[in-house]
Design a protein around this nucleic acid. Sequence first.
DNA 1: TTTCTGACA
DNA 2: TGTCAGAA
Length: 148
Amino acid sequence: MAEKQSNEPLIDSDKLIFGIGQVQTITGVSGRQLRYWEEQGYIAPIDQQKGTQRQYSMHMLFLIFHIQRYLKQGFTLQSAVERARQFDRQIPVLRTFLKNQFNGVEVEDDKSVIDFGYKDDTHQQRVYGVVENDRTHFLIKDIDETSK
DNA sequence: TTTCTGACA
DNA sequence: TGTCAGAA
């Protein structure tokens, strides 16, 4: 099996730009709301000159999407923004962790196993994430020095 | 056609 | 927040 699949050529998310029309279609947030949120300092388009058409990064699109999700759940705009921002701060952390720990996943019909690499620098145990249907759990295996 | 700003039955 | 106007 292939050991390393250095996944570098991912899409530059910074190059994915959306106009206010696309943002409305994707997130369901009206242009009027987007301009109001911007006026309140909650969101910001990509730096552009005044009077020109707004452009939003994919990152901002996600933020807008989450603000709207919390809004639908009944939160006020202010608290929805707070929660969206908190969530936003967690993404880079998860990304870094997965980037360093993810070592591939074996997909099977009834059960799939995610390889999270060694438990620590001692390299004596390996951690796996097991996915069965909708249930998940961790699995730690001891590494026997004799094989491989 | 779409978006921008400002205003308000 | 929606919607309408007048301009770009």
